[in-house]
Every structure is written in C-alpha cells, then in structure tokens.
Write a protein that binds this DNA or RNA. Structure first.
Lengths: 341, 341
DNA sequence: CTGAAAGCGCTAACAT
DNA sequence: ATGTTAGCGCTTTCAG
C-alpha cells in the first residue's frame, strides 16, 4: 500500500509524459488509444490512486461538504446527516461532521476551520437562537463565497438559504386535531427558542385562536434536550398548573423520553389520563403508539446537498434569501383520546 | 469573506517575506518580536486563515480522520462517532464519516477514497463477517501505512489493532444472571455473524455449560437490523419453538424495537410472561426498565482516536496485532423475573 | 533572524 | 495527440 505513487511514476512506467498520464487518469483532454492503454496498464500495475489533496489545492474543489449541527446524538440531526451523507456520496462528495453542542462559539470555530479546509459547501443547523443575532464581526462567516444551506433553523438578519418543513402549518394541524378531540388545555413542551420551535408555537396559537381559546403562556414550558431532569420537572409543572392540561404536545423528539418518564412516575396512562402528540418519529413512537408529526428529513437532506451543489456551480453566494418548505405529515396512532370538555 | 488571502498577502502587508510570515503564523522557526507583531497585525487586518489543503499537501498530515462503519443510524455507531468526533476535535482533527450499509464493496470503495484523501488515520467497524476473509487483492487496503483502528469487530486473518468491550465475559455474566433467576431456556436474537456477536454467543454457551444445560441451536435466531419484519418473525419463532423460551436475550440494541413490537403483538408482558435482557442502552431501555449490558462506547471512541494518533506519530503501521478490551457492565432493571423451572 | 527558492502532486495553458 | 512548464499555498532547506 505505498501511498507515494504519483502520476509521475505512472507516466514513467507507461513511457509518456505526466500530462498525458494525467489526461488519461483524469479523463480530460485528448489521448490516443495506444497511450491510454499503456497508462491504464501502469495505473493498475502500480495501484495508483490520485491524490485528492493535490487536486483540491490545484483545482477549485475539495469535494468535501461540512455538516455543522448541534449533536449527532439528536434524532433529527442523526437522520439528517444520514441523508446528507448518502446524497453527497452519490454525487462524489465526502462529509465532515462538526458537533456544536448548541454552542455558538463552537459553531464559529467550526466554520472558520471548515473555511481553512476549503470545503465546497456547508449544511448547517445553527445554534443561533431567534432572539440572538450573529455578532457583526462574525456575520461574514455566515454569508461568504462558500455556499451554506441552513436546515431547519434560520438566522435573524441574514441573507440565507433555508430548507425546512412546514412547521407552522403542521403544528396548526396537529393542534387542530387535538382540539377536535375536545382538548382545550394543551400543554407544550419545547426546546428553547429556535426559529423552528417558534413557528410551531405560532401554528399552535393560530389553531387555538380559531377555536376561540385564549392562549395561556403557562401552558408552554421549555427545556433543553440535555437537561433530563428539567424536562421531567417542566412536564410535572404542566400537569400541576391549575389550568390542568389534558394533552401534552411535545415539539421536539429529544424531549420525549423525559416526558414519558415523568408520566410514568406519576402513573399517568396514555391516552386514558393524558393525550400525547410528538414531533419526529422513531421506534419508540411506533412501539408506544404515539401520534407523531413526521418531517421529511430524508428529502430535506437530499435537497440540501443538491441546492449546495447547484450554488457551488453557479458561484452564487448568499445573494438572495431563498426558502424551501417541505411537507410534514401526521401519523395518527392511539395516544390521543377524545375528551368532553 | 475573501477566501483567497494567502500568506503572501500577509507578508506583503507586513513588509516581510513569505517565509517569515509563515513562521509567525505557523509558530515554527525563529522570528524577531518586531516582525512577529507586524505579521500578526496583518493577519488580523486581512482576516487571514491558513489553507489547510496546502498544508496537507506540503506537510505529511491532513489532520483528518475517517470513520468507516455500517450506518450512523445504528445506536452503537452513532454513539461511537459522537465520541470519536469529540476526541478528534480536541486533538485538532476533523472527522469524515462513511456509511458502508454493511456492504463490504462499499467499505472497500470508502477505504480507497480515504487513502486518496490522504487521511491520517481510520476508525473502522468493518462489514466483514467472521466467516469471510478479505479478498487477497484488497488485503493491503486493510493493513497499509495509514493506521487503522478496528472497533468492535475484528477481521479474520489480518494483523490489526482492535478495541472492543469484553463481549465474552459480559455475555457470560448476563446469561448467568438469567440462569440464576431460574431461566433454563434462553432465546437469543442477534444480528448476523460478526466477531462481536460470536463472542457474545460464546459467553452465553459457557454459562449454559457451566450450569449443565445443553445448548439448543434453535434457541439462537438471526436477523439484520434493517429487516424489521424478520426480527419480529424470528422473535415469534423463538416463542413458538417447542422448547419454549422464558427469556429473550437480545445481542444487539438495533433489534430491540422489533422484538418489543412482536412481544406486544402477542400481548406478552415483561417480565410477567417473558424476561428480556438487551445489549446497549438507550432511552427506551430506561423507560421500559429493561435490564441492559452497557458497553463503554465513549471510552472506546476516545481510545480509538488516541491509539490512532499514537500510531501516526510512531509511523507504525499494522506490524503487530494488538487488542484492547474495555469492561462492559450490566444495569439491572426490572425486565428479568425469577421463574421456577 | 530573515529571504530566496525548491517542491508536495496535480491540472491547464501553451507549444510542438 | 503529446510534452513542457507554470503555479495552487504552504513549509523547509539553504544562504546570507
């Protein structure tokens, strides 16, 4: 496995020049059938493999795409990376992963590092909250020459390309479904303030309003995925509030385990004692028959890569904001029960 | 965000030579305090970022590590990558992920590609079964100059460095635990024939033997993670066999959902009707109180990176096989019940 | 302590 | 159709 065989070695053995050998191997320019054969023979004999780093330096593409997101452990991210890697692979790109642990400082470091690496494009689920703006000095990192596709969350005050599912609408429909079952007091559990979550809350509010129900801020509680105890605590709080909820609507899959654990501790049965509706599907949801809003993650990932590759070709940086919205759908299982209110 | 600022631009602005600028930026060689300041000032002013691709071509390291494994969706792999990326980051490396989908052909393509990319090292969970051997022509891919650390599974007939948990022993102990509870007929569900699985089966057999129980081959069924229906079917088969099992021992977390789903369909309660013991922990296990064998994945990942970096430094390829075994432990929950046999 | 120059492996413009 | 050569951005001799 000598790693040091270069195009020069191939050329020598084949008895042609570096350029010709390169043309054959790279499949560009014109070559005679005779030299083609000789070169290919030499390639095989020497087990030559082109040096992608040199290609990357010489040419304008490193055939590398970075995925920057909170944590690969998160269910949504995990599926996203899977889809992204699959599509990237198909298109001849490799994927570098960067976990930010939802820390904007780390996100910025990763971005700088990826630019140093000359990646061709970036898929990003930013750690930036809706209320935050990127500091002025770092803004250029988020809108330079290298194309970035933002998935799921968008960033305030930035020209950018976003791909996400129809959060507002799907959330509206999910809420409407609960309302139709007679639930008037629907408690929400969500991760902290990201644009995605906000849109889902918006849809929730719209459905309430349409049904003449006054929104009660106490019915929304926040917790981060990592804070398992807090998730349980907030769940308990929802159940404890005077306006006792009859349904819990979990906006992020990552919080689901914590909610279920608290429900179990309180010996609340689903759906007899409480109804449950959750965003993002996984084995657990199917097993426990939890009604779920399913986002088309596979397609989002695929589209992200294709948009990226398109932008790379057209050399268009973030000149204009674009937004692709893909449809989510609800899988109705048995975790939501009719109540008479 | 001009990407095209080079060390030359910095040098010009600072009024020194490329070499001196490089020395300051790269922190090598000697420089006077005066030029140091001038260069650093220029770096800041121009927002210079070194080109890692050029460094990679010039130097001997690309600061890149590849992780090649079945699928990031698999729970074990997912946690492994997380740990690997975290440790690699800390040590100044980035991680490229490659999913083989448990297909040896894809694995080989990935390997070739990663060598083309001049990665510094590879963490690999090979798709190679125990009964298979790597074809002669590809063997060099698995034991060349670039250090590879094999995680979890090892490959037959190859000098290699393996890191894994004590599969045999932990499985022996898990089985012994079930035996002590009175279970005589313990059904196994496992993914197909990988070295890891084999070791676990070995531990299982040893425990049976020690207790004078004759091993019944029908009590072991295989299915792949992806074949959800087959998992259910095999579970049913275990329950149906004349030698009806009183406990199911699942050797791979990825099969767990399928097993649970079948148990549910058959309205078998855990642990009243059947005991359950599973490898690898996740939220689900805690929630359903499933007794679990927990592998130290975090440490395995960390150790893999450190071994890799060590091997890179010492330039030792796979000259000798090494093996690191880390301890698993069992978390006892309530999914296993005493029976009188 | 600093600068000039070579070269990592590749591709592309220019000659032949 | 093929060879020669320059140069991508960096590091590292080698002189001075």
């Amino acid at each position: 496995m000598d790693q040091n065989i270069t195009i020069e070695d191939v050329a020598k053995l084949a008895g042609v020049s570096r350029a010709t050998a390169g043309r054959v191997v790279g499949g560009y320019g014109n070559t005679s059938e005779k030299s083609r054969e000789k070169v290919l023979q030499a390639v095989k004999e020497l087990n030559y493999r082109p040096n992608l780093v040199a290609q990357g330096l010489r040419g304008q593409s490193t055939k590398t795409i970075a995925v920057i997101l909170g944590s690969i452990k998160n269910n949504y991210c995990n599926h996203l990376i899977y889809a992204v890697e699959k599509e990237a692979q198909k298109k001849g790109y490799n994927v570098i992963i960067c976990n930010t642990h939802e820390d904007i400082r780390q996100e910025i470091r990763h971005l700088q590092n990826m630019y140093s690496r000359q990646v061709d494009g970036i898929v990003m689920m930013s750690a930036c909250r809706t209320d935050e703006e990127i500091e002025e000095q770092y803004k250029e990192l988020y809108s330079g020459e290298t194309p970035i596709v933002f998935v799921d969350r968008k960033i305030k005050g930035l020209t950018s390309c976003v791909i996400q599912s129809n959060n507002e609408l799907a959330s509206y429909e999910a809420t409407k479904y609960l309302l139709e079952l007679g639930h008037q007091r629907i408690g929400i559990l969500a991760t902290e303030d990201y644009s995605t979550v906000n849109e889902r809350i918006k849809g929730y509010k719209r459905a309430l309003e349409e049904n003449g129900i006054v929104f009660n801020p106490k019915n929304i509680q926040f917790a981060a995925q990592s804070e398992k105890n807090k998730v349980a605590e907030m769940t308990a709080k929802l159940l404890r509030e005077k306006s006792q909820v009859t349904a819990i609507y979990v906006l992020n899959n990552s919080l689901c385990a914590g909610v279920l654990s608290e429900l179990k501790r309180q010996k609340k049965n689903i759906p007899e004692d409480i109804s449950l509706l959750v965003w993002d599907d996984e084995d657990l949801n199917e097993l426990l028959e939890i009604t779920t809003v399913v986002q088309p993650i596979e397609e989002i990932g695929k589209m992200a890569i294709n948009k990226l590759i398109h932008d790379m070709r057209t050399k268009k940086g973030a000149e204009e904001s674009t937004k692709e919205i893909l449809d989510s759908h609800i899988i109705y299982r048995s975790s939501c029960k009719k109540v008479n209110s």
